[in-house]
Design a protein around this nucleic acid. Structure first.
Lengths: 198, 198
DNA sequence: ACGTTAGTTGAACGAACGTTCAAGTTCAAC
DNA sequence: GTTGAACTTGAACGTTCGTTCAACTAACGT
């Protein structure tokens, strides 16, 4: 007796999240309609309410999914025992791939302001955890002498901004593959961190 | 006989644009209502239609204003005759100040997808011009031997991403002033461009 | 064959919002 | 004081969209 409860997340739920994420990214939360999200899956809009209580819950689930994936990457890197600069490179490269290839650019772009206060609090907290994880890596690099001293917070914001902005210009059919973007971004963002000869 | 035509843009139009920009930034284009934009100015929503044909025209005007300001900075820098790395620093510092202090974080964040096809084309074209201006500065630096060879396009996207993301985390009452952000961002983003000893 | 459960549908609702407009107000010029 | 243009208002309209729900179908164990 394998019930839905024991067997894990409902496959249809995930399909809905994918469709919603794509719609939200293209049109924004308010710009995308429940009907569009459903139509992309050959469903009727009423049907989505069998799987979610309301539109906002769908948005929240999208946010959570993205955050979970990125936090997973962070923990992998943190426990890898690699050198600090290699850790940061791994995180950037894996992060770009996750955002572009798996989340299709929907990572952290979704409207926050449309979330309910409780959900917003949860997502902000998760985002802060990721930020602070990145900062720990940078501090590690500073202590190891490979990264320059300086405001870690602002540099981490700059790095996250560069990454989060990628979906705004990325074209899957364009000249740059996600692999190239990942590598060149890692090159550039890490080069700015390194100690430069006085 | 100073008519509205000869005296320049209507002051009320500008007030509306400011209010709209603030609302769009907080809530997104679809999330912000015409009534809210008007209420912030102690106006009734119907009144806005005396100054603009519709909501989309307001969004377009916001985009245009931001673009004009940033293009102005670009041209100033381009004609300054300074060294390439100093030019880039000037552009970053002035850009951060413009985005935070003058545009109040509304620069390039506004929804593009809500624009009409014709307006969208105009804004995209303007944005491309800015991108290409930045790339010209980078190429100049490469030719002068102060910037590292490498993919200029991707590095310019990384820089613009870092800058455009600032409004997402900036808190006017927070610890970092716009001056500090401008300086530290310039430090970091330019450090990653410089040639590093082989 | 029957019953149960899971999933789907179409129609309807109520609220919110962009837009219109005729009527109203203000005020400077004559 | 009258006129007329600039500007404002409140109410109304038409649409769209999120949400609900009772009825319907499909699949499957017994």
């Amino acid at each position: 007796m394998a019930s839905r409860e024991t067997i894990g997340p409902h496959p249809t739920r995930i399909e809905i999240l994918k469709s919603a994420a794509a719609a939200f990214r293209r049109l924004g939360y308010h710009g995308a309609t429940v009907e569009q999200i459903a139509a992309a899956l050959h469903m009727k809009k009423g049907n989505l309410y069998y799987y979610f209580h309301n539109k906002e819950e769908i948005l929240f689930a999208c946010h959570q999914y993205s955050l979970e994936r990125l936090m997973g990457l962070l923990h992998e890197v943190e426990q890898s025992g690699l050198a600090p600069d290699v850790k940061v490179r791994r995180l950037i490269v894996a992060g770009v791939h996750t955002i572009l290839d798996e989340l299709h650019g929907t990572a952290l772009f979704l409207d926050l302001e449309a979330l309910s206060p409780a959900h917003l609090k949860t997502i902000i907290a998760g985002r802060d955890q990721f930020d602070q994880g990145l900062r720990r890596l940078l501090e590690e690099g500073v202590k190891a002498g490979v990264f320059d001293r300086g405001d870690i917070k602002l540099r981490s914001f700059a790095m996250l901004g560069a990454l989060n902005w990628i979906p705004r210009w990325y074209d899957p059919d364009g000249p740059a593959t996600s692999q190239e973007i990942a590598d060149r971004f890692a090159d550039y963002l890490i080069a700015g961190l390194r100690v430069h000869e006085a």
